[in-house]
Design a protein around this nucleic acid. Structure first.
Lengths: 197, 197
DNA sequence: GATCTCATGTAATCAGTTACATGATTTC
DNA sequence: GAAATCATGTAACTGATTACATGAGATC
């Protein structure tokens, strides 16, 4: 199953965080740009996405800043790998970053804009859109719940190094539950006759 | 109180939506770029922000596309106003946009990245950050609840044209409640001794 | 024969931010 | 006298997207 985590609320505001996402990922395990791109397709990528193009660009910048180093690993039949490793300067930067408060990001939701367009637009299409979104959030929630059950069967007995990832997963589950609840509220107001599903 | 709505989850992905946010805003009421910027500081701005610079840029683009027109209103002692009005092409575009599904946006949370950095960073600072964020979400929730009580005292007797705005406000409240709940879960795991507040 | 995986990038474009610019009127 | 409000923008920059490029090996 190839799911990408999403949410009814878009925000942005805190830019420049890709560097730090990569630092975290490399702190967990050294990797090539290609590896990172795949990790950003899953795990970390549920809450932070990046294309391989962007990752290569940022890795170059980080290397020039001295946060990472790479070792070229020749391969046969395929292009050489560049395996990136955190430097101590990179580890320092991670420490400094976690010591500063993260600004609470701006909420941004295109869907919310669309809801406000209700009196001026195609109401039936909007209701249909809500139903579609509801299904997507349902799937995602199921996927997160499954991951949680598989990787963290006993949340009260987590190893300290698993705590962060668990809490992130919990955040994703809470967000999806909320998104679902919101869809239900909307449907109840806009299409009350069909209280199905 | 000058609050800007925010959320622990940043997303983005669906770009180019500022045009549609402006279309909705102008459909509600004709306005100058300056007016729009102020509206984006409040109401719609709780869920969609834009600077005046960006708004002027986009208004120019929309005017060239024929979605809006403006009338220059001279004033004394201040610069002339350009009052923008939706054209029928603009109204068509709004209709077309609401007829298409909005892609479910990507979740993006810098704070989630920071949680994953727990084993490699300053854990006490991260806990302090969570407490700060908790307070922010608490304030916002209170602010939304107050707005809801003032503008929509009886949610079961809404006029049809108020429905969209009400549902958006509800989304904001749900999001803030969830953000709060997440902060509490995090604090319970990372600083269980102080189950204060 | 087509598509997928591995592995690296460059180039063009775009939405949005930050900084800069102007100038009268009103409020503290 | 300083700051805020009204009202419009331009310029430089940046994070990120989309499109383009290459090339071998493995799977369908």
């Amino acid at each position: 199953m190839h799911l990408v985590a999403q949410h009814p609320f878009a925000y942005y505001g805190a830019l420049m965080a890709l560097e730090h996402a990569i630092l975290v990922s490399l702190a967990e395990k050294s990797a090539t740009g290609y590896d990172l791109a795949r990790r950003f397709d899953a795990s970390i990528g549920y809450f932070w996405q990046a294309s391989h193009q962007q990752i290569y660009k940022v890795l170059g910048r980080m290397e020039r800043a001295g946060w990472v180093e790479f070792e070229t690993v020749p391969q046969d039949g395929r292009p050489d790998k560049k395996v990136y490793v955190l430097t101590s300067a990179g580890r320092d930067e991670l420490g400094a970053w976690t010591s500063k408060a993260t600004p609470v990001e701006y909420l941004r939701s295109e869907f919310a804009v669309k809801l406000r367009a209700l009196p001026f637009g195609n109401a039936t299409a909007i209701v249909e859109d809500v139903r579609t979104r509801r299904r997507v959030h349902e799937e995602r929630l199921a996927y997160y719940a499954e991951s949680a059950a598989r990787f963290y069967p006993d949340p009260d007995a987590l190893r300290p190094d698993q705590m962060g990832a668990w809490l992130v997963l919990r955040g994703g589950m809470l967000a999806e539950e909320t998104a679902l609840a919101w869809c239900d509220e909307i449907l109840q107001r806009l299409a009350p006759e069909e209280t199905d599903r």
